[in-house]
Amino acid sequence: MTFHFVLLLSRQGKTRLTKWYSTFTPKEKQRMIREVGSMVLNRSPKLCNFLEYKDYKIIARRYASLYFIMCVDKNDNELLTLEITHHYVKILDRYFGNVCELDLIFNFHKAYYILDELMIAGELQETSEKTVLRLIATQDALQENPGDGGKPGTI
């Protein structure tokens, strides 16, 4: 299993997105979010992006006010994980047009939809930015409520 979970935290430690690819109990999940969160948030930006946590490796990177946290196996490629994170951020940016934290708060489900097109079962499924954007756009168009389709506004 490549990814165990993906976690987005705000600088204040608020959860913005959680995606679990491996099975954990709700208690474990809460504990992990808490522990990983405190590890990541207390890190100085000058330090490296990799952290060891239990049997996993945490790859965390800050983009503006958001921390993108990925949890992978010990023997997984850390740089690849970083690149996937970057890939995800780029797609979010293209989709929302200069993405900011508010976009992800008001359209949190969109962030999930994009992630679901990018990754499945903890593996990268689509390497092309354009394809992902096209897929999401098509699906948005299929939705009944166009107001729910793109820009921030409704929830």
Binding site: K19, H109, Y113, D116
Partner: peptide, 19 residues
Amino acid sequence: PKFTAKRVGYWAAAQSFRE
């Protein structure tokens, strides 16, 4: 049967269902 609902439903299920 609507995609709007399916998309949300499946996504929410994926988020909250456990084994």
